[in-house]
Design a protein around this nucleic acid. Structure first.
Lengths: 99, 99
DNA sequence: TTTATATATTGACGTTTAGCTATATGTATT
DNA sequence: AATACATATAGCTAAACGTCAATATATAAA
């Protein structure tokens, strides 16, 4: 996963509603019809958010009759986590004596 | 760290330039005057990006004379990582028999 | 005290975004 | 075939965003 992919995922997670959607999906696959109840947004807006989450491949869809079931894409989530976890933070490298 | 904080950090990392800045800082503290050379943006734009990264507390500043030294905020980065790492992805919970 | 340098702020701009309403599409039921 | 329901798309609007040029602020050097 390269920086552009990561930026895209971050942009997707940068919206509070979408972050909450991802959290909700983190507890397992959900039908759009159930998800809509939890948010104060209209159906088209939810659909729009799901499209963005699918486009960055953070979310998968499974169609069952007229229902859409969304779930987290484990592979993408895992690659994203790896990338974030590699961002090192070395306190000792800060300059200045501080003494 | 709550969802709003995480969304703010993600929004900050959702811009390619800012993500690259964070990557650069991941190798240690940097002076703004050095950072500007690595990007094709003007000085005011860099300053603007740094302000956003500071506002979500992902980045710290240290002033030394007329130079500003930026570094990652270990505490925030760590809390952010924890949050992302808690996002579970359980492939088995997806519905459908698939068999 | 003047000049040079590093950074921040202001104000303007074109673009992107989240949200809505209205409508279209697809699927199941009657 | 007609109806009902779930979801997607289109088109719009207001707000937010990334960028820049111009200018202000702060510090160091001459």
């Amino acid at each position: 996963m390269n920086a552009a992919d990561v930026a895209l995922i971050c942009k997707a997670l940068g919206d509070s509603n979408r972050l909450q959607i991802v959290e909700m999906l983190s507890t397992g696959e959900k039908c759009a019809c159930k998800m809509i109840d939890k948010f104060e947004i209209t159906q088209p807006t939810l659909s729009h958010h799901m499209k963005i989450l699918r486009e960055c491949e953070l979310v998968d869809v499974r169609k069952e009759g007229k229902w859409m079931h969304y779930s987290l894409n484990c592979e993408t989530l895992s690659a994203f986590r790896d990338y974030i976890n590699k961002l090192a933070c070395d306190e000792s490298r800060k300059g200045g004596c501080g003494c």
